[in-house]
């Protein structure tokens, strides 16, 4: 093979351009290719091993089930419940965790009083409380929201405290020397300072809220994707189970993506070079 007869620059062989827009396009294309490849391999596996549909249904069967459940409203009815539980749990858990985190970060007394419980509960698998909550709370929606909120509560709480504690005292001194009020210090210093840690906590919280909602539905509910998964298992309707699983994955990914986008926008200053 002749060595380098044509003066083709090697750097442009694999990337079409360094402009960020075409880079993004390439990334999207690669994503689509990867999904298509996954479906192809899945289909090939089913054909090769000749699995019965209740063990591993072919992609076509899952697709058909998706269309049916979309058309008769089943999927949306269950997915909307789960989505409401996830969002409700996220809102409740993050709000309470942030408020309590603020108090704990600010008040050494409260911190000393409560931190033993927080440390103990952090190690405790909160999901184990779910059956107890079934006894205590009759309303499935409220109960599942509470379970989701509980699952994400401690990680978000700890992150909020860490974020607020890291606010540099020198910056507080600057604000004070400029006669900033307590409220201005909160709005213009503490919130922006803690924002990166808080957004990280929100991402963890969103992932945990999905887990919490599914567990809440597993332990006692007659609606939602978690219930649908249980139902499909009982009926050995594996295509339906896959539809529910994929929908759940889509919700989790969408939520995570939204928060990442928010992070990208709010922390744009970090990328300035």
């Amino acid at each position: 093979m002749p060595t380098s007869t044509s003066p083709r620059p090697p750097a442009t062989r694999f990337t079409f351009s360094h402009n960020p827009r075409s880079l993004r396009l390439i990334r999207i294309l690669l994503g689509v290719v990867s999904v298509l490849l996954f479906i192809f391999l899945w289909d090939a596996l089913v054909r090769w091993q000749d699995y019965p549909a209740f063990i591993l249904p072919p992609p076509k069967a899952v697709w058909g089930k998706l269309l049916i459940t979309l058309a008769d409203g089943t999927l949306w009815r269950h997915a909307s419940i789960t989505l409401a539980e996830i969002l409700g749990g996220l809102l409740l858990g993050v709000t309470v965790a942030t408020l309590l985190g603020y108090l704990l970060a600010k008040s050494p007394l409260l911190d000393q009083l409560l931190s033993p419980y927080i440390v103990a509960l952090q190690a405790f698998p909160v999901v184990a409380l779910a059956p107890l909550l079934v006894i205590w709370i009759q309303q499935p929606l409220a109960r599942t929201i509470l379970i989701a909120a509980l699952v994400l509560f401690f990680p978000v709480l700890v992150n909020t405290i860490v974020g607020l504690r890291s606010v540099e005292p020198e910056l507080v001194a600057v604000m004070r020397s400029l006669q900033a009020t307590r409220w201005q210090i909160f709005i213009k210093l503490e919130i922006p300072f803690a924002l990166p840690v808080f957004l990280g906590a929100l991402k963890i919280g969103a992932t945990l809220a999905v887990i919490g909602a599914v567990i809440g539905e597993f332990v006692g509910s007659n609606r939602g994707l978690g219930f649908l998964i249980n139902l499909a298992q009982g009926l050995l309707d594996t295509p339906l189970l896959f539809v529910a699983l994929f929908t759940l994955a889509l919700i989790a990914l969408g939520l995570y993506g939204l928060i990442s986008l928010l992070e990208y926008r709010l922390l744009a200053w970090k990328r300035a070079a």
């Binding site: 020198e170 001194a173 600057v174 210093l189 922006p192 924002l195 200053w269």
Partner: peptide, 9 residues
């Protein structure tokens, strides 16, 4: 102050 203490954002 000795360090500029500007707000990075």
């Amino acid at each position: 102050f000795q360090t500029s203490n500007l707000m990075p954002w």
